[in-house]
Amino acid sequence: MDNNLVDVFSLFDGKEEELIPILQKVQNTVGFLSNDSMEEIARFAHVPKSKVYGVATFYAQFRFTPKGEKHIMLCRGTACHVKGAPRIQEEIENHLGIKEGETSKDLKHSMENVACIGACSLAPCIMVNETVEANLTPQKVEKLFLSKGKNK
């Protein structure tokens, strides 16, 4: 078994109720949930693999393909929408050449839509990894993602 998984499992008792925290920890450590990881998790938590998939596919947070180095979360909340989020999304998609839900071939960027991220007074905003980028304009987006931008 992958050493990463051994480390993660050592933090838990292997009870069914721990399924979501286990999935979260595995995803945080490995980056995504591979079919092999899912199998090991099922064995560890003493539940069928279908149950692990059932839970993991329900929640928007879990991914089954690798994330990019820079993971971009686009807020699709109402406050951001009103302040022009669709335009911002278009700009970012144009800059990076990937669409919402995709990861770039070089694994540099990935992008997904999320619900309101609680920074509505700074709308429109996105999150890049764990940092909120606020009050976005097409110009700002360009700066963020152009060749010298910090998120290129």
Binding site: K15, E16, E17, E18, L19, I20, P21, L23, Q24, A45, G54, V55, F58, Y59, A60, Q61, F62, V114, A115
Partner: peptide
């Protein structure tokens, strides 16, 4: 501490319980 996994519905109290028990929301 338990962390939400990206479901608005899990803020609803009974659904939150399901999620805490390790089930679909």
């Amino acid at each position: 501490i338990r962390l939400g996994a990206g479901s608005y519905l899990c803020g609803e109290e009974l659904t939150l319980l399901e999620s805490l028990e390790g089930k679909r929301g």
